[in-house]
Design a protein around this nucleic acid. Sequence first.
DNA 1: ATTGTTAGTGTAAATATGACACTTAATTGC
DNA 2: GCAATTAAGTGTCATATTTACACTAACAAT
Lengths: 231, 231
Amino acid sequence: MQRPKYDASRYERPSVTVDMVILTLRDEVLQVLLVKRKVWPYKNRWALPGGFVRMKESLEQAAIRELYEETHVKDVYLEQLYTFGNPKRDPRTRVITVAYCALVRSEDLRLSADTDVSDVRWFPVPSLPRPAFDHGEILNYAVARLQNKLLYTNIAFQLLPDLFTLTELQNTYAAILGKPVDKRNFRKKILSSGVLEETSSRKQDGRHRPARLYRFVKEKELEGLIFPKKR
Amino acid sequence: MQRPKYDASRYERPSVTVDMVILTLRDEVLQVLLVKRKVWPYKNRWALPGGFVRMKESLEQAAIRELYEETHVKDVYLEQLYTFGNPKRDPRTRVITVAYCALVRSEDLRLSADTDVSDVRWFPVPSLPRPAFDHGEILNYAVARLQNKLLYTNIAFQLLPDLFTLTELQNTYAAILGKPVDKRNFRKKILSSGVLEETSSRKQDGRHRPARLYRFVKEKELEGLIFPKKR
DNA sequence: ATTGTTAGTGTAAATATGACACTTAATTGC
DNA sequence: GCAATTAAGTGTCATATTTACACTAACAAT
């Protein structure tokens, strides 16, 4: 027991925020939502949206609230990523941030800027301005986790509409993994995994041969394991 | 922007603690360190060791400090697990806890109790008293993560001494996974993965045929991927 | 009817996994 | 020294998974 019994610094409390990595797929590219800061520090730099955790809300409620404030979406995929607590990560004061990742469908979004930001925008993940604070690190962490989860879960359906073609799904995988995906092997794997339900409709995109539309099987959305097939 | 501009509750701050899941292998059984609480709430119940994050230390530093206070070990494997923030998880006040997992070698331990606990003890993970707070949930999370990481990383060496036999290593896997491991398949896999270095010495445990001693290859300790072999 | 474009389909080789039983080398007790 | 005991150490085969790879089918536009 090395602790002094009355040490005022033991009762100083760091603040806690949640920061949101909000990802979506636009033009078949993975994009992240950033807000432009109006004030010091990192004035005019782009940052992850986020805010303080209030006294009576859970971390997840705080994340849902922040997400709704920025994008007006509810009921989306939300996952806690990691907690960043370097004492110097915010030059104002000690702020510990719990990072969350949200995956949203681009079709049901209405962006809105917070009071202390001057702009809100989607940025393609491969070409970003360098974000404020340690938000670049947080974003990298989120993308790495998403890439990883893509390989053994259903997570991709969070980014796609109810009905989609196999090519759209394949392109989603390729976009997130950042590398091409073999068409035949992809189809073999995903179809034999049983997470997809074939529909009778086809996508009439106009010019070419119409593609069959699929949807994710409802019961499989939550359990999530695709690839390692049980024997 | 739905936020009222001056809302005092926005400036109330939750406290932040780190809670430690300290795991070791004793008698070839996975064991966790718990402390017995002296005071309300959960007086006389067993809990994970932990404490407040101080103003000027990182989360990891706080975890290292707590770990040292309880066990006097340094330089062990430490990993952030998850952050638990349910507003009701502590009946006294709002406490957000960042859970860390530490893996220690049982041979270099000197346990010591904190001021606000009456006892410190190892408990075999399969047979525990029900812990205080949400610490049961935290512990389950830690064990699930460890089991998972065992399958694709080197993490087991954190629990073993420098030199060990293949049977000891196999028993470690079996103890953590909670199920038997096939001897020949295990040896085939672990030897072909290249993480082990054969030594010329053998373990003279007395009674029987002496077993060859191995150690983990130093450079491989950190990268960690064992099983999915790259092509 | 021809052209352009994307959808859709199968096979074979290499690799990884999982089940399974006997021999070897030491100690102990007689 | 010899037999009994105990844990160490070792290999094969069947099956499942992964990967590489190229052509035909269906529709729209002209």
